[in-house]
């Protein structure tokens, strides 16, 4: 699965994209965020305020309870500030 990071989430995580094999018990966006916190200092810092981080599953806005099975691309980012 491909993971993408944008804005300050990207800066704190220290990378903009990666390919990962997820543990079998990670099945929702919320579980994926909880897993990210366990991946070392950078990820713990990036996902420290997980409640403010938004996610997109296959380029569509997702909720914490959104299922991620079969997704090919999941992105994490702060609330958007365009316009």
């Amino acid at each position: 699965m491909r993971l993408l990071y944008f804005a300050w989430v990207r800066e704190k995580a220290g990378l903009s994209s990666e390919e990962v094999e997820l543990p079998a018990d990670v099945t929702t966006v919320a579980e994926l965020m909880a897993w990210q916190k366990t991946r070392g200092q950078e990820f713990a810092s990036a996902f420290e305020r997980a409640e403010v981080i938004r996610a997109a599953v296959d380029q569509a806005h997702a909720k914490p309870e959104t299922e991620i099975a079969g997704a090919s691309e999941i992105a994490f980012f702060p609330p958007v500030t365009g316009g």
Partner: peptide, 20 residues
């Protein structure tokens, strides 16, 4: 657009870069 298009602004001023 302002609340759903995936854009992020970073401002640069005298106090360094800052995510909006």
């Amino acid at each position: 657009l302002k609340s759903s298009a995936p854009f992020w602004k970073q401002e640069k001023g005298k106090q360094g870069p800052r995510w909006v």
